[in-house]
Amino acid sequence: MNSRLTQADLSAWEDNWTTEMGAWFPGERVVFRGQDLFADLLIEPGQLSWMGLMLYGICGRKFDEQQLKLFEGIWSISTSFPDPRLWNNRIAALAVSARSTSNLGLSAGLAASEAIIYGHRPLVASMHFLCDTRQRLIKDESLEQVLEQRLTRSVPGKPGAGKNRQVAKIPGFGRPITAQDERIQPLLALAEHLGFDKGGHVVLAREIELALQCLGHNLRMNIATLMGALCADQGLNVRQYYHYITLCFSAGIMCCAYDAEQKPQGTFFPLPCERIDYSGPAQRQWE
């Protein structure tokens, strides 16, 4: 197939954005994925929560109350830490400490959440890994074979430092700062309470963890795998999942911004000059 679009194709798009996502009719109504936002979606008895509305926008289907509790619980338990030392949270704290606006800090913090050692990139990669593995097992490959292939593949960079940093070879297993992921148990408890702890992807995640131990890799499932498994079990695909997690850090980031607002300007972890360890060229003259 020739994927090239011709000039005529682009002209066809001029003043023509065709969509099923929705539109605003000024002063009258809003259509949201084929339904009237005010009459059909937000008025009892079919009222949707904000999470429900967002997921309806992303996936085009309505999730039930139990599912929405799970989706909201995933955010609350997994990605809402109000600790300003965490990298994305820190951006908002720095912004507001420097007396920028919270919104700018939050926006930049969310953008930074597309990181490699945490955040959206390992989250997406983890779900992709689970779905891909499930596909390959359906095609009669063995789990050991899939994992060995993953572990031995050559990648241009490492997650933690260096050029061309990449997410881990087995994304969603192992953790950089501490081996123990304190979020697994509470999220599993929520999933169990809601009846979602025995879905196919959650079971597969446990099998992968076990298989990794058998192969001699002490890599425990981290929260990225459990989040991805639970969402895949609810039928989200990788791109839908990516959009679902886009705002998942917002509660923690916003709290850090608000906290910084309460403190005097410029006081967030100030650094004296001597706390820059310089290792570059010696002092020299520009001749």
Binding site: V124, R134, V238, R239
Partner: peptide
Amino acid sequence: CSPSSVSADLANAD
């Protein structure tokens, strides 16, 4: 997330 829709989506690992 049926197997067929997964395969269409698996190209996006990032």
